[in-house]
């Protein structure tokens, strides 16, 4: 069995933190436009369970704000192809097997903040593999205002 090691990383919002190396999620293709960013950890936003940070463990300035789409967009409905899922070794659709998040772009207010629903980030929780997948659905774009449905509305 692989030994779990502690390591220190520098983060964008929390300074230096200690993580366990089995928390590292490998994105073989990086995120789109950030192809060199391949190793991330998910950090919970303290005091607000609706947000997480996807933090590059090597580049502190690369830290994306993430949401669970269904917290904000209860009718979010996407189709992920088997071929795309196989790239992160997701072969069964059991709930605990993988998670779906979306990247948030913050604006001056929540109304001006948006989620990118056309390119969800899919993470295989067991294998610690991730991939940003573009869904070919004309309903979705890169900018859906956060307060449109769901929370706080």
């Amino acid at each position: 069995m692989k030994r779990v090691e502690k390591m220190k990383i520098l983060t964008k919002y929390f300074g230096e933190i200690e993580i366990l190396d089995d928390a590292i999620i490998n994105f073989p293709g990086g995120l789109l436009g950030f192809e060199d960013s391949k190793d991330f950890v998910l950090i919970d936003m303290p005091g607000n369970s609706h947000f997480k940070f996807l933090q590059d463990i090597h580049k502190s300035y690369v830290s994306f704000v993430m949401i669970n789409p269904w917290d904000f967009f209860e009718n979010y409905d996407i189709e992920l192809s088997d071929i795309e899922l196989e790239k992160i070794r997701v072969t069964s659709l059991k709930d605990d097997n993988f998670s779906i998040y979306n990247v948030v772009t913050l604006g001056k207010t929540f109304d001006l903040s948006s989620a990118n629903l056309i390119a969800p980030v899919v993470i295989n929780n067991n294998e610690k593999l991730g991939r940003q997948i573009i869904v070919d659905n004309p309903k979705y774009t890169t900018k859906h205002p956060l307060l449109q449905e769901g929370l706080g509305a």
């Binding site: 789109l32 990247v103 772009t105 990118n116 573009i134």
Partner: peptide, 19 residues
């Protein structure tokens, strides 16, 4: 579509607010 996702990922990182 691909370009718009690349651009939005870059936008997502450029927020200057106190996140």
């Amino acid at each position: 579509v691909y370009d718009s996702v690349v651009e939005e990922n870059k936008n997502a990182l450029s927020s200057e607010e106190d996140v």
